[in-house]
Design a protein around this nucleic acid. Structure first.
Lengths: 226, 226
DNA sequence: TGTACATCAGTGAACGCGCGTTCACTGATGTAC
DNA sequence: TGTACATCAGTGAACGCGCGTTCACTGATGTAC
């Protein structure tokens, strides 16, 4: 990857081209402040109802800085949403890191989604508000879901209809579950009950045998036992 | 309902009080034009991105008339969304008019939602864009759903977990199905296949026996047979 | 280590216009006698 | 049926300010020698 030109550049300027292109710490700090302010403000209002003045005041930077980092307000909103999406993706990946069974991985995605909605309702609100359609490829739960469903189908663990509609079905359930948890803010026990019921219904619909679905639903209620 | 005062009023002015309060035909026409313009424009942009000028030009009325009918832009957007919601509610009610079996009624709601998304993708887009949360009581499919699910539970037709999460589960599936149909605009055959698969997965999840779920899914593909 | 220079990001005042909202007036519709 | 009056909705010009965007300048950081 390091070619003659870059070596030359390294010698001359003491920085790799990658570093030369990467933002300075100061720049990173300003950007982070703006994103953090956006996360706060987007909880209560859609982006169009938020003046840039509010963002920069809360971020503690000058108005002009905003346009050093984002082309316009929409660009900014997209960056904030991407931030949350990446956070959720990371949590899903971590939760499923050592899990091989595709059905357990599918269930794990919903468990993480529910836990995120419960632990970070403000961030979850921003994610759900971001107009990224639930059905889209860029949905944070979608990344591995398609592969997991196909793997489970190969193993004969799901009913055949899941081949056509399984991904949509599961994303829809995770999405509506998050919306419900964020909107109603139930107690820890109530939330666990809703998740458990939703897992039982959802997995049964995919064709997972009742006892297995109920097992996974039960396990979801005591994450420590995982 | 007609009291002395109103009779007096009728004699005197030749109009019932209800009529006196109801808007004139001219007023209704103007309002309808504005709503129709809103339906057109809200397909492509959220309300905040639509200038009132655009609305009144398309409606062919003066700008001032807008504020004769709506308090502000948000009020207008709500009225437009309500319009679509009522349309969908009407279709669901009509489709389920003669159907007594609660499971068939539940399935019917999804069939209507899918048909609406397919036949009126523009209106469906407005409905799905309206920030009314899918989980809310005011969801057009929600009206009778809760009652149907409870009835089915009483008859022992659904698994017990549906008592806690059944409404949420079904609304989520209908919602994501509509989003998918509107976004991807599949062919008539593909749409029928997705609906059929989703019905099979969804009903199985509720605890409907496989053969019954597949029956209802099959029937959904030839509405004429209803 | 020190000095001069180059680059990059931050700053906030200023601009200007898009757009929501108001209002005095007009014309249409309805009512009284 | 005709005339005078009252009410109601429509009209569009005018207002004004909120807010996105620009830009000349400053200070900080990095590089060369």
């Amino acid at each position: 990857m390091v070619n003659i030109l870059e070596i030359d550049y390294l010698v001359k300027y003491g920085r790799s081209m990658a570093n030369a292109n990467s933002p300075s710490p100061r720049s990173q700090r300003t950007r982070a402040s703006l994103i953090a302010a956006g996360l706060d403000l987007l909880v209560d209002r859609p982006i169009d109802a938020i003046p840039i003045d509010d963002v920069v005041v809360r971020a503690g930077v000058a108005k002009g800085s905003f346009f050093n980092h984002f082309a316009d307000k929409q660009d900014f909103a997209a960056a904030v949403a991407a931030e949350v999406r990446e956070e959720v993706e990371g949590r899903v990946a971590r939760a499923n890191a050592g899990v091989a069974d595709p059905v357990a991985r599918i269930a794990g995605g919903m468990v993480v989604a529910a836990a995120f909605a419960e632990a970070e309702p403000r961030l979850a609100t921003v994610l759900l508000r971001s107009q990224t359609p639930a059905t889209s490829q860029s949905h944070p739960l979608n990344r591995g879901l398609r592969a997991d469903i196909e793997a489970a189908l190969e193993l004969g663990l799901l009913r055949p209809e899941a081949r056509g509609a399984g991904v949509l079905y599961w994303l829809g359930l995770c999405h509506v579950l998050m919306v419900n948890l964020v909107d109603t803010r139930p107690s820890r026990e109530e939330a666990a009950q809703i998740l458990s019921d939703m897992l039982a219904l959802g997995l049964s619909g995919l064709g997972v045998p009742l006892h297995r679905a109920q097992d996974l639903a039960r396990i979801s209620r005591s994450p420590a036992s995982k």
